[in-house]
Amino acid sequence: MKNIFLFLLIGMINLCVFSQSEITENELKEHILFLTSDKNAGRYPGGKTNKSIVKYLKKAFKNIGIKSFEVGYKQNFKAALRVEKGVKEKPIVKTCNVVGFIEGNDELLKNEYIVLGAHYDHLGFGGPSSKSEKKNTIHYGADDNASGTSALLEIAEKIASEKHVLKRSIIFIAFGAEEQGLLGSRYFVENPLVPLSQIKLMINMDMVGRMNKEKHVYMGGAGTFPDGVDFMKTLGKSLNLTPIVHAGSVGGSDHVSFYKKSISVLGMHTGGHRQYHTPEDTVDLINFKGQKQVCEYIFKTIMTLASTDYKMAFIKQD
């Protein structure tokens, strides 16, 4: 009966969703080209480069029709930057999360939220987190995590075009300073813009641009909400993907901050690669067709959970 229920949910969403604002490979590429441009110098927290990227994200949120909270789209915080071993004093810079929401339509369920997030920062010219011997070289971070940021914008645009079917509300967050120790997501959960008890699921996208020939989409945390493992497997296979679904395996990126607050999570990615944290993580290696498929997967996940009465509850994983 469980599988039948899941198929009915997915089928209903497929019938009702005819978006006028499609996720496209061209738009995904445009966003990544901007984020990985030499001008943006590896998207290091703080300074003029950070401000340029935040301005781009704020404009995109506004154009999509995402609403801002009272603080505006920016949630400002200070980040202590990582330093080389032996250096005691950490530089402190000003950066921010870019946050907005689309409100649901159900009188009760609109007070429940699903968070979709991705970090927009990277390593700048390398620093202590670099895996490369090349010093003072731009680390472009096309997959890590311009891919997640571009996916955030494209999925948000498509959700906005179908907001009339939403029951639950959706919060969109582009996190700052993830590479410095999940600082943006940690700041958000310590200074939430809605009560944490009302956040029912956080979906995080970190490195979603390098899908392999087997169409693997990896995720951790699917067991943190009811029937999550079966749900994600069934939906992924219906989209001709090969989902690698873990009930637990919660770690490694911004969703960890939410899980530590007893919030259900999904950490989505397309796998590691040897260009990780090196200057060679560039746009020419992005599989845009695959990235689009990941976006559709996440979009349909959100629409199924946000436009139905799907039971949501936190389930702790060992």
Rank of each mutant, 00 (worst) to 15 (best):
T149Q: 05
H164K: 14
V189T: 14
L235S: 09
K134Q: 15
I171M: 14
D143Y: 04
E112R: 12
H273M: 10
E178G: 00
L35G: 09
Y297L: 14
L123P: 02
G221K: 03
K134R: 15
A118L: 03
E27N: 15
A80K: 15
I203C: 08
K39Q: 11
K51M: 00
F61W: 09
I286H: 09
K167D: 07
T95R: 05
S197W: 01
K200P: 02
I13H: 05
V250K: 02
I302T: 12
E27Y: 07
G176C: 08
L305C: 10
H31K: 09
T137Y: 01
F69D: 05
G252N: 07
D38W: 00
I138L: 04
I64M: 08
T282E: 13
A146I: 04
L109Q: 14
F125L: 13
A160Q: 15
S161C: 10
D38H: 06
I286P: 11
T224G: 05
V294P: 07
G290P: 01
E214L: 13
P128R: 08
G181V: 09
S169V: 10
I199Q: 06
G252I: 09
Y44R: 11
F125D: 04
K94V: 05
H164I: 10
S307G: 12
N76Y: 06
Y276M: 12
M268Y: 10
F77G: 03
M1K: 11
T49I: 12
I159Y: 15
N105A: 03
V217W: 01
D144E: 08
S37N: 05
E280N: 12
H119T: 01
V99T: 14
R168W: 08
G47L: 00
G221Q: 07
M211Q: 00
I13K: 14
F77K: 02
Q198T: 15
I315Y: 12
L81H: 10
I171N: 12
V54N: 07
K200V: 13
I53H: 08
Y56P: 04
P195I: 02
H119W: 02
D318F: 03
I286L: 12
G126S: 05
K289D: 09
K59R: 13
N76K: 10
Q275R: 10
G47F: 01
K85F: 08
E179L: 05
G72M: 04
T234G: 03
R210P: 03
K51H: 01
V217C: 01
S238T: 07
D106V: 05
A146E: 06
S185W: 09
V294S: 06
T49P: 01
D38A: 10
G267S: 15
G220E: 05
F61N: 12
D143T: 08
D318A: 07
E112H: 11
E22M: 14
H269E: 11
L28M: 07
K90D: 06
E89F: 07
N40D: 07
V208N: 08
V217M: 02
L285M: 14
Q317F: 03
K39T: 13
I64A: 03
K94N: 15
E89D: 11
D254C: 02
H277P: 04
F101Q: 11
N287S: 03
H255I: 00
T224A: 05
N191M: 06
G251T: 10
L183W: 11
